[in-house]
Design a protein around this nucleic acid. Sequence first.
DNA 1: CATTCTGTTGACAACGTTGTCCAGGGCCTA
DNA 2: TAGGCCCTGGACAACGTTGTCAACAGAATG
Lengths: 342, 342
Amino acid sequence: MDRTARHSETRYGNRPTMKDVAARAGVGLKTVSRVVNSEPGVTPDTERRVQEAIEALGFRRNDSARVLRKGRTASIGLVLEDLADPFYGPLSRAVEEVARAHGALLINGSSAEDPEREQELVLALCARRVDGLIVIPAGDDHRYLEPEIKAGIATVFVDRPAGHVDVDMVLSDSFGGSREGVAHLIAHGHRRIGFIGDQPRIHTATERLRGYHAAMADAGITVADGWVSLGSTEPERVRMAVEEMLSGPEPVTAMFAGNNRVTVTVVRVLAERERPVALVGFDDIELADLLGITVISQDAAAVGRTAAEHLFRRLDGADHATARVELPTTLIPRGSGELPPA
Amino acid sequence: MDRTARHSETRYGNRPTMKDVAARAGVGLKTVSRVVNSEPGVTPDTERRVQEAIEALGFRRNDSARVLRKGRTASIGLVLEDLADPFYGPLSRAVEEVARAHGALLINGSSAEDPEREQELVLALCARRVDGLIVIPAGDDHRYLEPEIKAGIATVFVDRPAGHVDVDMVLSDSFGGSREGVAHLIAHGHRRIGFIGDQPRIHTATERLRGYHAAMADAGITVADGWVSLGSTEPERVRMAVEEMLSGPEPVTAMFAGNNRVTVTVVRVLAERERPVALVGFDDIELADLLGITVISQDAAAVGRTAAEHLFRRLDGADHATARVELPTTLIPRGSGELPPA
DNA sequence: CATTCTGTTGACAACGTTGTCCAGGGCCTA
DNA sequence: TAGGCCCTGGACAACGTTGTCAACAGAATG
């Protein structure tokens, strides 16, 4: 087995190259390139011959080589927490649409809320020289991105702020939304209100908790021990937290759920109970309308679209100071948040 | 502006290359390559010097060049219908996990159920020389893939079969699941049962309809005009179809919904009605348990995992005949499918 | 001391494409 | 017919990496 043959095995299964096409069409290499890229300066007759050769050989341009030469990959990376989370589906889709409009492909990965995995993913994307990055951070220190950003990889952080690097951010108004939701419960007569949120490591979790405290303080209510529970969003954990808040001599009469996964579990637990408990959840959920769940809704698609548009504006050369956009949330009353205290 | 400077603008923002690292560390190019790839045969001292230079310059290997040289991209493409669809989130995530276990990245795109866009996406992925492809097809003719497959891009079709090409497929048992669901309704006393499904162009839609017809025939029921409606899954369209089936002198007493999006709309419409109508839906939905919706469930994550595992087995050299896996579905009774005829 | 062996290192070509630049032919004009 | 221009086409280098191979130093062996 000679060297050429050995090579071809590990390569792209012996795909024809422009050189092959050129040989078959009886033209020069560059002429093929011109045809493939629809560049001017090729007579119709030559072009036809080249096209025929392309067809016959099943040639397809090797974008890896192209990228190496041109320096742009026409792809962007999206690092999020979990593609399976219903919040990220629409976000991801919105990013994809914008990318498509700019002729770019989307490479994505899930960090599973693990800072190390986030970094690993981000750096892998940088090694591929994606033109830009959209990151929903899991960790809170992103200094590892500095050389990459300096080297020109446009970056936008989404949903949570970046730690120790100066980049564009697109966030939801977690504090304001949460404050509004809790105030809504207070307005309906509640004073003993529980808060169940995500892990305190996560920025949105603490922001939402801050909103809760602000609303309670606004109403002059002292938050009792045991009304606040932060931790994993595992159903087990949330279930225990809910049950604890509902037991004891002075159970809460209303709850605020810190994100969609928490809300789902809380709804399930409350459904098993007799005494009605008011509930407002952060993030909308499919079918929440039918279940009558009052929520603070953030428009995931709008978040994704905004982030992607910022990114491409950077890629198109905008070099103004880094921006921090905060998108408003909406309270959607559907019943669960308007229940009076039991 | 001289040529070098002009170039550097369009390139990766003047990122340092191995050559730069080599110069700074006072070693040869290949030695840097060895260090970067943890190849043996470098003394600790040399390695340290190289590492320092890498740190100092913020070097990161350019995977585009690497890919060009090695012929493997360590990435796979996933083409699905809509990332925002809750069915595809877990599927996509499962694919990603398998890819990650094999050290590959995932590039994905949505076809939006448009065959042309599907082809465009698939070919773009092939041009990037992804190692493998997982496709949820929108169209029904995939001969355009032939040269690609011949050239060695491993391909697995998911959820719907491929048209006119011989590739691995991982499907759900649409026919069987649908038949079981409709039989379930019949067992609960229904005879006038409506079917609302996706566009007939889509294979699963017709398979599910076939299951419906089979169950009806098994029970000796003649399907009346107006009990079957195939078309877009737009809420408007579905709503009209439901309302039509529920009006008239002999309205249906039960409905079978052909997929999750249809189910959601049907549930909404039925919720507005007084007379209860039984319902079984294909695909599970979050919170369906709380709403008491009986469904035929297919495990999206299992589908994705299976497909990805098949793909990587191919990439690892398996060259047995193409396989066609059909995963079973499960009926989950939750109330809506057990309602008696009104 | 000559020889072989082992292990480290670097020079060089190649991967497939695109940018630059030049050659040659046809056409127009003087 | 000579001179100039435009148009088409091709030769060649370069992108940043990795595989191959040879050179070299030092250790081990005769």
